[in-house]
């Protein structure tokens, strides 16, 4: 069991305060809004906030257990996300064994490496070993139809859902001078900025959204939502500098980068969804869609954030 320090507790107070405020607003709006579209938006909003409560409690609880809890939590997140990804992208029977390896050997081993803080292997296991192993394993199926496409899909799923996502709990392994034992706060910073950026993009998009930013790929994303979300996330990130080893300006820069990558992560995963003709990757989290819909932005932001900190601070 790990006790949170003063700063983390202050942050948690802020997060739960924010959630309570959001719940209160929805509660007050409920008696005022009567129009049909308004009621349906409110229902979606209410479901989203409820899911936020659950996700926050699970996340905070995992962090409280120290490193192990966060590693297990993200391993489970990767598992659910990869499952949604592979379900949506057609593979053939010959890929069955490769998929079995991906789910039951590669995911646990990658997170084992995170847990044991073996950076040298963690950073290359999937891009080198799993990358080469997957097509070799698929050869056994004696089926060359769409071979490149099938192999690439599994590799891509592993990279996004497992490799990229595993960089979030891997923040706990970084050795930063004058910051030892406090790395959990870096993870809080990342998750908070990435998710608030999503939330503010949604809020600004709903309130002011007029101009579509990529009408074909993601019709609901607007320039107004994008700018509002990025600016808000950058501002929030910079105001949380006391949580991190960064200065105010570094924190702003990091938050800006996280929010931008998050935006492009969401858009990229949207493009894949559109191509497959679906709106969400799943229906695991009410109001949000599937696990992958919730973490797509995190997957893009986590590795870059991890390596920037590693490059400049260690």
């Amino acid at each position: 069991m790990m006790a949170f320090d003063q700063e983390t507790l202050r942050l948690l107070l802020g997060i739960f305060g924010l959630l309570s405020f959001a719940s209160l607003v929805v509660f007050l709006l409920r008696s005022r809004i009567k129009s049909k579209a308004g009621v349906s938006t409110l229902q979606n909003l209410s479901a989203r906030i409820k899911a936020w409560w659950i996700m926050t409690v699970i996340f905070v609880f995992a962090m409280l257990t120290g490193g192990t809890g966060s590693v297990v939590l993200f391993a489970l997140i990767s598992f659910l996300a990869l499952r949604e990804f592979i379900t949506l992208t057609p593979t053939r029977k010959a890929d069955h064994r490769s998929l079995f390896w991906a789910f039951f050997i590669i995911i646990p081993y990658q997170y084992f490496l995170v847990g044991t803080q073996y950076y040298g292997m963690f950073s290359i296991f999937i891009p080198v070993y799993a990358f080469l192993f997957i097509p070799i394993q698929s050869l056994k199926g004696e089926d060359y139809e769409r071979f490149l496409e099938r192999t690439a899909k599994i590799q891509w799923g592993l990279m996004i859902c497992v490799y990229c996502a595993s960089h979030a709990p891997a923040l706990l392994m970084l050795k930063i001078p004058n910051f030892s034992g406090q790395n959990a706060k870096l993870l809080f910073f990342l998750v908070l900025v990435v998710q608030l950026s999503d939330v503010f993009q949604y809020v600004f998009g709903k309130m002011l959204g007029r101009t579509p930013i990529m009408p074909k790929i993601s019709p609901h994303k607007t320039v107004e939502g994008f700018v509002g979300g990025i600016v808000a996330a950058t501002f929030i990130g910079s105001s949380l500098w006391w949580l991190t080893p960064f200065t105010v300006w570094q924190a702003a820069g990091m938050a800006f980068l996280i929010a931008m990558l998050g935006f492009f992560g969401g858009a990229t995963m949207s493009a894949i969804k559109r191509d497959r003709g679906v709106k969400d990757y799943g229906n695991l989290i009410e109001g949000h869609g599937g696990m992958l819909d919730r973490i797509d932005s995190l997957c893009f932001a986590a590795p870059v954030y991890f390596h920037l900190i590693r490059f400049y601070s260690t």
Binding site: I86, K93, F100
Partner: peptide, 15 residues
């Protein structure tokens, strides 16, 4: 059939 195809005994947990 993708979770457990004919002739395989190890299931893959798709949806």
């Amino acid at each position: 059939s993708r979770i457990l195809p004919k002739g395989e005994f190890l299931p893959v947990p798709l949806i």
